[in-house]
Simulated scan of single mutants.
Amino acid sequence: MTKSTKPVFRFAPSPNGRLHLGHAYSALLNDALARRLGGRFLLRIEDIDIARCRPEYEAGIVEDLTWLGLSWEEPVRRQSEHFADYRPAFQRLKGRGLVYPCFCSRKRIAERVEAIEAQSGEAWPRDPDGAPLYPGICKGLPGGGAEGRIRAGDAHAWRIDSDEVRRLHPGPYAFTRFSLTGDEEVVAADPRRWGDAVIVRKDVPTSYHLSVVVDDALQGVTHVVRGQDLEAATDLHVLLQVLLGLDTPLYHHHGLILDPGGDKLAKSRRSEALCALRTRGVTAAEVRRRLGFYPQPTPST
């Protein structure tokens, strides 16, 4: 783990589309807080989704952030270049019996949940993102059978065994939330609402949750500033930090920038990108002013 006497902030976009005003706000806020506290500002490229992430989108991220007047430390960490860093963390969880392989497709999970709901007449519980909790289809597989399927090359993910985690680490779990005025409060975390979450995906040897936790530790991140849409994920991140013996950063989850219809901006909804604003003649100063970051700061020394 990289130790630092200064606060360390990071902006960590995924290069699967162009940045919009919501990304701009998060990046500018991280930079502003780093400057206020005399800290460091990092850019991290979270590109484990090798099917959707593209070099041209990463170039667009750099172009947009530079246009906004931001600068960051080099080299930039790209998750796709560091898959080997996540393997020891996974192996530690596996060695303690805290994960198990899952061979299920989304279709099979959906079918099992539908069958359970039809039989019980009750809705199956969902995680904070609205997806049904994993119904444990592969949890009871005999060890030899699972190992044989893995040796045969069957595609599989690895899930947290929440029952075993509760037995060995019953909690309670918590993290410290900080406000923009510097106030802090301890907030309870509830990893149970994520159930047996995927920790290693089928297509890559990690997941968003595992990579973020490992990267924050390796980079010495002390303050995680991100949108409210990721607040629930903090429960799972705190759990992984405890299981892996890692420090838990301070967290701040800022409000989201909404479109005229009241929905959050999102690449999937094709919200207007910063490059489109630039094409329309909108200046970086106008964007900063609109988001509450004006005047532009002078470069750090």
Rank of each mutant, 00 (worst) to 15 (best):
L133F: 15
G220R: 08
Y294E: 15
L240P: 06
A12E: 00
Y100M: 03
V224Q: 04
E272C: 10
V8E: 00
A24T: 05
P299N: 12
D163F: 09
L65N: 06
A123W: 01
G60S: 14
R289L: 14
H209L: 10
D129R: 14
Y294D: 14
G227H: 07
R35Q: 07
I61M: 09
Q91A: 15
S71E: 13
A266Q: 07
L246A: 09
A59K: 15
F293C: 05
Q296D: 06
L141M: 12
I45F: 08
S162E: 08
A131H: 15
D49T: 02
A189M: 01
I48R: 03
D259R: 04
P205L: 06
A284K: 10
I61Q: 10
E122V: 08
I199K: 04
I257L: 09
R159K: 10
D47I: 03
G171E: 08
P299M: 06
V221W: 00
V200R: 14
K3M: 09
G97V: 07
G22R: 02
P142Q: 01
E184W: 01
R280Y: 12
W67F: 10
Q219R: 11
E164D: 06
Y25K: 14
P101L: 02
E147K: 10
A59H: 14
V8T: 12
G69Y: 01
P299K: 05
G39I: 04
D64R: 03
L98D: 03
F83V: 10
L141N: 08
G171P: 04
Q219V: 11
H209I: 07
I137R: 03
C138N: 01
L37T: 14
K267Y: 00
G22I: 05
D229N: 13
R192L: 13
L43D: 03
N30Y: 07
A118E: 10
W194Q: 00
F175Q: 11
H254E: 04
W67E: 06
L240K: 02
E58N: 06
P299A: 10
D235L: 03
S268Q: 15
H209R: 08
Y251M: 11
D129E: 15
